[in-house]
Write a protein that binds this DNA or RNA. Structure first.
Lengths: 119, 119
DNA sequence: CAAGATTGAGAAATCAATCTTG
DNA sequence: CAAGATTGATTTCTCAATCTTG
C-alpha cells in the first residue's frame, strides 16, 4: 500500500488526514483532526506542515475562535485524496481476498472486542 | 504495554531485540538480527546504538568474518529482557482475556491467512 | 564486484514546555 | 487559569549512498 501511495506523493498518515478533512466537508480545526486521527496534537501540527508544503492543505485562523487553526483542503488535496482512496481500496481488496465471507465476519467481531474504541 | 516497559527504560523495539539475542544464546551478527526483527539493517544499527548507550548490549567484531559486528547481551541486558518479558506477558494476558477460546482459535487461523510470512 | 555495516536525510510519532487567546 | 497550537528533543523507521572487508 505504502509504495503505491508513494507514486502520487502520499503516505498512509497523509491520506488519513486528507480523508478526515474530506469527510468533514473540506476543513476542520487541527485539534479536532487530532481526535479523528487518534494521535497527539503536535503530530498533527507536523503532518499539516508537510501537507501544506505539498500544497494539499492550507492553514487559516478559525473566525469563531482565534486560538484555533483550520486545516483546509485545496483543490489539489481533494484530487490527491480521491486518487489515494482508489489506490487504497484496490490494495485492501487484494489482501482480504484470501478470507471467506464468514472469516471476514469473525474478524470484524474479534476486532470489535480487542479494540472497542476504534469501532 | 509501552508505558509499562518505559518504567524500566525499555520500549517494544528494544525488548524485541533483546529477546532475539536471548533466543540466540546472547549474541548475533547485526545483519541476522535485522532478519529476525523483519526490518532494515540501518534500523538495527541505530537500535543497537541506543541499547549500547543503555549498557544492555555491546558490539564486537565477528572473529569469523571481520566485516560483521556481533551484538552481545550484557548482564544488565539479560536482566532487563527477563523483566521486560514479564511485563509484556502480563499486559497481553489482560488484552486477550476479552476473547473466548473459540475466538482465539479463529483469530489465529485468520492471521495465518492474512500474514502467512509471519507464522 | 558482494556483503556487512554505517551515515545522512527525511517521515512519523510522542512528550514536555511554551505561546497565544478565551 | 484552560484550551489550541507550536516548538524542541527523542525514538523509530525507511531509503540512498558510502565505507570496509571478502
Amino acid at each position: 500500500v505504502e509504495s503505491r501511495l508513494a507514486t502520487i506523493g502520499l503516505s498512509i498518515p497523509k491520506l488519513a488526514a486528507l480523508q478526515r478533512l474530506t469527510d468533514a466537508g473540506g476543513s476542520m480545526p487541527l485539534g479536532q483532526l487530532a481526535g479523528r486521527l487518534a494521535c497527539v496534537k503536535s503530530n498533527v501540527t507536523q503532518l499539516i506542515d508537510r501537507l501544506e508544503t505539498d500544497g494539499l492543505v492550507q492553514r487559516s485562523v478559525d473566525p469563531v475562535d482565534k486560538r484555533s487553526r483550520l486545516a483546509i483542503l485545496t483543490e489539489a488535496g481533494r484530487t490527491a485524496c480521491e486518487e489515494g482512496v482508489r489506490i487504497q481500496r484496490t490494495a485492501e481488496t487484494e489482501v482480504f481476498a484470501s478470507l471467506s465471507q464468514e472469516e471476514a465476519s469473525q474478524l470484524a467481531e474479534i476486532i470489535s472486542k480487542l479494540a472497542p474504541h476504534h469501532c
